[in-house]
Design a protein around this nucleic acid. Structure first.
Lengths: 192, 192
DNA sequence: TCCATTACAGACCGACTGTCGGTCTAGAAA
DNA sequence: TTTCTAGACCGACAGTCGGTCTGTAATGGA
């Protein structure tokens, strides 16, 4: 049970790579199963043997992309002196990573509408959101019962900027604004 | 040339109302033109006479929803004492409005993927984003060349919370966190 | 050797979007 | 009054797409 398993895994990987490219280029709706079939020189039966449907294929693609991104951000944050520094470096790394169309289209634009917001959030919690929440907690700048909401706001804000930068190209300016944004947020709760 | 024009406008409105409800309930992909046809007791030809296609119909729906939301938020902000107060009241009103499924599904989830991010942004600029940017400028808490980016981050953050509240129901808690978030942001740029 | 399991093939189905030739009628023009 | 035009509306149809189903080949454990 080795040759068979390996062949199957290889096919799945091939399909995954092709689907990732197509989804990124043409979006979920603009990509037909037919296209994937054609490029992978596979039959319908084979594809549906490995993936339950178009949605499931998309979800597998999303999962793979998120995993890769997670590793790259972890790498970028490695040398950070403290929690706040890690948060800043992570944010910067994320914005730069998200210049890739693969991430923009698949993770930020199509995923919520294809999988539904709940499912998307669940996937994010295991990756980008989870990391950010951890980093934010480590800074101790936010009281515990606001942590969840803060992490949501922060991630959404940074995602938006990633998309913005991808269109306008004003990377430095946006990064400075995000730095400023983070500085204000981390300044600690003012007296009310 | 009056009866004819009126009849046409009435048909467009009828279709728009039905499409809005269906898009909100089943999402863009889950709503078929066939459904709209059936509920509006109209023929394919007639519908395609008034709207260029499914995308165009969706865009018309989005525009109508955004316009309504714009009015309601303007109403909510009316009595605000100063710019900061207006921003806070606007944010709160927006979060509460976004408890409607119509707004969540159509404006926040489906629009970016159906129309594409650029088109979506363009529509938003004429409505929610435009208002928020104006309000933020009026507070003078953000330097001019960061204004655009800040407005993006802020809107994205608030939108995210609107979706979060819609799922978890913890309105008060989320609103307090947003209040806190705004307070920190508006506290002014710290010395660097 | 036998057989269960897995990989793969491709015909087929129903549903969907968008097109196209055409009808009907209000109301302007003659 | 008669004629003509533009716009509202109709429904058959083509083409595409996602997904199903039956069947075949080959691997590897019993």
């Amino acid at each position: 049970m080795n040759l068979k398993a390996e062949r199957g895994a290889a096919t799945r990987d091939r399909v995954l790579a092709i689907a990732t490219r197509l989804f990124a280029e043409h979006g979920y709706d603009g990509t037909s199963i037919e296209m994937v079939l054609h490029e992978s020189a596979l039959s319908r039966g084979a594809l549906y043997h490995h993936y339950a449907g178009k949605d499931a294929l998309f979800e597998a693609v999303l999962e793979a992309v998120e995993t890769r991104v997670g590793h790259e951000i972890a790498e970028a944050v490695k040398g950070a002196a403290d929690a706040e520094e890690a948060l800043r470096q992570g944010a910067r790394a994320w914005i730069r990573l998200a210049s890739e169309q693969v991430i923009q289209r698949i993770v930020l634009i199509d995923a919520p509408s294809v999988l539904g917001w709940e499912k998307w959030r669940e996937v994010e919690a295991r990756h980008a959101f989870g990391m950010l929440k951890g980093a934010l907690r480590a800074t101790k700048a936010v009281q515990d019962d606001h942590l969840e909401v803060y992490a949501h706001m922060l991630l959404a804000a940074i995602n938006e900027i990633a998309l913005l930068v991808a269109r306008t190209g004003k990377t430095e300016k946006a990064e400075r604004a995000v730095e400023d944004f983070l500085t204000r947020l981390l300044a600690g709760a003012p007296p009310r």
